Amino acid sequence: MKNFLLSMGLAVLATASQADTKLPQSHLNSMACLENMGQSTSWGQCLSLIFEPCASFEVASKAHVACLQSEREGWTASMRLLQEDVTEAITMKSAEDLASILSGWINYVSQKCQADGDPEGNLPLAAKQLGCQITELAGLSGEYAACLEGRSTADYCVLKN
């Protein structure tokens, strides 16, 4: 499995935009896993890759939450790099469509990842919310990579000629 994901990550890297070359290899591997989910990978395998950097910590411990916060920052940076490249690569109309979609996506993620309970001082809740946010960022990053590589069927992904 690891060899397959490594080769998929390298394939993504070989055909991806300049922003992708700045992405951590672990993010490329995770996006490749998500891209192939249902064919040669599973959701569980992809989650293992996405959260591997934090796997050594006790779930919901302070160290685990700190690791997840760091991972969310890393995925946010990867998503933004890819988003910049997508915005430059797509038509003006597509960029307007993407901006509209993103405003809805931000609200969607906020609502989806908001768990019941009091987030102050509740480490299990914080870990759950961070995990949700990270998986959403990984998915969006993968979609951006697919757009840049010409594999996306999303309506917003109309590349300039």
Score class of each variant (00 low, 15 high):
3 N>Y: 10
8 M>I: 11
9 G>S: 13
10 L>A: 10
13 L>G: 06
15 T>Q: 13
16 A>R: 11
17 S>G: 11
20 D>H: 13
27 H>E: 08
28 L>H: 08
31 M>W: 10
32 A>N: 09
33 C>F: 05
35 E>L: 10
36 N>T: 09
36 N>D: 08
40 S>Q: 09
41 T>A: 10
45 Q>W: 00
46 C>S: 01
48 S>W: 05
49 L>Y: 06
50 I>W: 00
52 E>G: 09
55 A>F: 06
57 F>R: 10
63 A>F: 03
64 H>V: 01
64 H>M: 05
65 V>Y: 01
68 L>H: 07
71 E>S: 12
72 R>Y: 09
77 A>E: 13
77 A>W: 07
77 A>D: 14
82 L>Y: 04
84 E>M: 11
87 T>I: 08
89 A>W: 03
97 D>Y: 05
99 A>I: 05
102 L>H: 08
106 I>A: 13
108 Y>R: 11
110 S>C: 08
111 Q>K: 12
111 Q>W: 10
115 A>I: 01
118 D>K: 09
118 D>M: 13
119 P>T: 09
129 Q>W: 03
130 L>E: 04
133 Q>D: 07
134 I>A: 03
135 T>P: 01
137 L>M: 12
138 A>R: 00
138 A>D: 00
141 S>C: 03
142 G>T: 03
146 A>Y: 02
153 T>E: 12
159 L>S: 10
